[in-house]
């Protein structure tokens, strides 16, 4: 289905969905491995970025599930080193964004990544309710979600004495406008 542009049938493979939603073609990758060589966290991932690409290319549902259940897609920092060095300009960070969202939609989030997802959720909630990031609230909310009560507690006194931690959130005037944004944005992928 690599010539998908001329067909009207739906490519239901994960690579097809990536292509439909991000206009990025996984088949362009010829496995040079530059992305994995430059990725600062490749060694900590279950599959390095080039392997994610290879698994996508196969269109095999077994591999597709491995991708969506991988730790890799959550560990990716979006530092953009891979796309910077990719000779075929395959925009892996944009693909990773799509794969993360698809992994949530299919309830396949890797158990090791639960904290990362909790943190993102706490972060977005803070914006939804005040319009801005309320750092203290974020940390408290994240701790409630992740049960990591004592992590970072030692940083608190230092932050307070340096005037770096506020305890009262700032709420912007246009908060309704911002919370409307959260309601209106689509949570589905393109059909």
């Amino acid at each position: 289905m690599s010539s998908g542009a001329h067909h009207h049938e739906v490519d239901n493979s994960l690579a097809g969905k990536v292509r439909h939603n991000t206009q990025l073609n996984a088949q362009r990758c010829y496995q040079c491995g530059k992305c994995s060589a430059g990725c600062p966290l490749a060694a900590d991932m279950d599959y390095p970025p080039s392997m994610i690409l290879r698994m996508l290319q196969t269109g095999d549902p077994v591999f597709e599930e491995k991708i969506l259940r991988s730790y890799t897609i959550w560990l990716c920092l979006s530092c953009e080193m891979c796309i910077q060095r990719c000779p075929m300009e395959v925009d892996i960070p944009v693909m990773m964004d799509y794969l993360r969202q698809e992994s949530i939609r299919r309830k396949m989030v890797n158990p090791k990544a639960k904290n990362i997802v909790s943190f993102h959720k706490s972060f977005l909630d803070s914006i939804k309710y005040t319009g801005r990031l309320f750092e203290f609230g974020l940390v408290v909310d994240y701790k409630m979600r992740s049960w990591k009560m004592f992590q970072d507690i030692t940083l608190m006194p230092g932050m307070i004495s340096r005037g770096k931690l506020h305890f009262i959130p700032e709420r912007i005037k246009g908060i309704k406008n911002v919370s409307n944004i959260f309601t209106k944005v689509s949570k589905e992928d393109k059909k």
Partner: peptide, 12 residues
Amino acid sequence: NCCGATAAHNMN
């Protein structure tokens, strides 16, 4: 308002 940072583009 907040730009959404990493959280927004990872999630939506």
